[in-house]
Nucleic acid binder design. Structure first.
Lengths: 336, 336
DNA sequence: TATTAGCACTCTAGCGTGGAGAGTGCTAAA
DNA sequence: TTTAGCACTCTCCACGCTAGAGTGCTAATA
């Protein structure tokens, strides 16, 4: 029975009882299958578009399938990924070690092109990254360029307005101060530290510290957490999107990046692979789509997530393996 | 006659002789119009999808229309843009003065959302920008972060591998050297200067210069000229893309960004507004679409272009005005 | 009790038909 | 040169029909 549900998944269109008997040779006749399918429909796992069309799994049906996937011994799935691929892909990621955003783009692309679904990467949350150093460069007029480096290899730059009287040496002093104070702490810790200190030492601030604080706060003002999306165009070639309105729904969903961001942020709390199917999705724009995610970590700390977004009729088995494998590869790259 | 061709453009679907007489009151009867239209068809300006459907402009027809647009006194068009808008938009761009890529994103978005076509911006070619300064920061291990600032406000950073023995002071010296030599020159000039000097002074290079050259060359290795595209999703709602295959063609064209890049680079040679209609397009992927472009300049030097991409049945008049106006606004922003 | 064969029933997809409507080309008159 | 009139063409849509696939139900069977 279990097996029956599972078998529907791979098929592109409604499937009837005869088909099942032919494709999967249990010792049953079509009639028996019909009975079972009628039961399954009553239980809510299947539905038929109309009488006398085959049946199609409901979201609940997919959910059952996915759950049964994870129940059976992991090895069954993981065996399918050639260790060779893992090696090769890890090496490839290593090449991008010095440019983390290029690396994430590569990850997203690989996910998309191997799966034909939409590949998404949620980079590490700015807050949880570790301050490595900041540099301040005097630019035109009163403009100052701040470059922030994190241990994770993230480089961000921002142009600030500052007192035009500040000379490069002053900036250096400020940067030195910030580096000495903050290096090795996560941004979150720093924000907390800052707050504490601001309250405590408010009275005895000297000019330098005051400026440093102000500059730091300005620099931090690029919380532009963003996601990296690939494969939007190829996914439109799937038969699931042969309808114009469906394509429009899809593109609307993708357009609302912040919506996806919100969902992924939610999912990133839980470690390991997660599957969200159609209506289970808390966000209206994404109902009708399924999301398979996995977190990647640096050491033990979860950093961000990689995900595949596709139609509910998705090859979950494949997607889960891919997302899982690739998340592992990313984690591994961060270990070095 | 001229007027007849023009009037077709705004209509979403095939238009017949009766319609013309009703909508545009020349003193002619449908029969006369029919004769004229038959002539126009023979000349290749119109075509009919089938006998007894109305007629539709051909690319040649659109071309005629566009040409006749630019023949009449400019003011006719430009009057339609409220000076107020120009003011307002220029002020808005000013807010982005310190973050040029955000500014281009804003430009692209504005183009797209006001026109409902696809907004595209080709940022200044890296080669033609002016070196302002470079800074080198020692990072983890043998990694060095190079930050390049240009006068135009472009900030790029790249991680390089360098001799791990180099200390921050050495890097500062190298940066100072490069800044002293290159500041105020365009990247292109620098590349030429470099080449010359390399040939001339090859013998007497000291270690510093050698390192400086090597670092500079590594830093320059991010020629990732890219375009900024907006409005892909909204454009799908146009009736012109009510067909799945058309949407797929469109997305294929957009996906091949380098293709568009190539076309725009080509068009950026000529100053002012340019219109490329359907088949006129040298690139297969874009036949079936029209492109309206205009260059923006810094002083007298053309920097890049803004463009609208839409269906051949595009509101050329509106598109031309928009692209022109916005290019002017961008140019103006660069003047400060 | 579980399974199966048989049969009537239902629904869709595909196809041809036929009428309405829109638009045309042509001819003859103004 | 323009216009009125008319026969013609083609699409679109609604209708009806058939073939095919799949179902549910009942009665027979292991």
């Amino acid at each position: 029975m279990n097996a029956v549900v599972r078998s529907y998944i791979d098929r592109p269109d409604p499937v009837g009882s005869r088909f099942v008997t032919r494709k999967y040779s249990f010792g049953f006749s079509p009639a028996t299958i019909r009975n079972i399918m009628a039961d399954l429909e009553e239980m809510g796992f299947l539905s038929q578009p109309h009488t006398s069309a085959g049946r199609v799994p409901t979201d609940k049906g997919y959910r059952f399938y996915v759950d049964s996937l994870s129940e059976q011994p992991r090895t069954d799935n993981l065996l399918e990924v050639p260790g060779e691929f893992i090696e090769q892909f890890s090496r490839r990621l290593d090449e991008f070690r010095h440019d983390i955003s290029a690396m994430f783009a590569e990850v997203s692309n690989t996910l998309a092109s191997l799966s034909n679904y939409i590949g998404v990467v949620l980079p590490p949350k700015a807050e949880s990254t570790t301050f490595n150093r900041i540099d301040l460069i005097k630019y035109k007029g009163d403009q100052v360029v701040a470059i922030l480096l994190t241990d994770e290899g993230i480089i961000k730059n921002k142009v600030l307005q500052a007192d035009p009287m500040l000379k490069q040496e002053d900036l250096n002093r400020i940067a030195d101060y910030l580096n000495a104070e903050f290096s090795g702490h996560t941004i979150e810790e720093i924000n907390n530290m800052l707050m504490q200190r601001m309250r405590r030492e408010k009275a005895q601030w000297d000019k330098l510290i005051e400026r440093a604080i102000s500059i730091y706060e300005q620099s931090m003002n690029f919380v532009q957490d963003d996601i990296i999306v690939s494969g939007i165009y190829d996914v439109m070639n799937l038969p699931d999107f042969s309808d114009v309105t469906k394509i429009r729904e899809l593109s609307k969903a993708i357009k609302e990046k912040h919506v996806i961001l919100k969902l992924l942020a939610e999912l990133s709390r839980v470690e390991g692979v997660q599957v969200v199917i159609g209506n289970e999705n808390p966000i209206d724009e994404l109902k009708g789509l399924s999301v398979v995610t996995s977190t990647y970590k640096e050491g033990n700390r979860p950093m961000g997530i990689v995900a595949l977004i596709g139609p509910t009729r998705m090859d979950y088995s494949k997607a889960i393996i891919m997302v899982d494998t690739i998340a592992r590869c990313v984690s591994r790259t961060f270990e070095d």
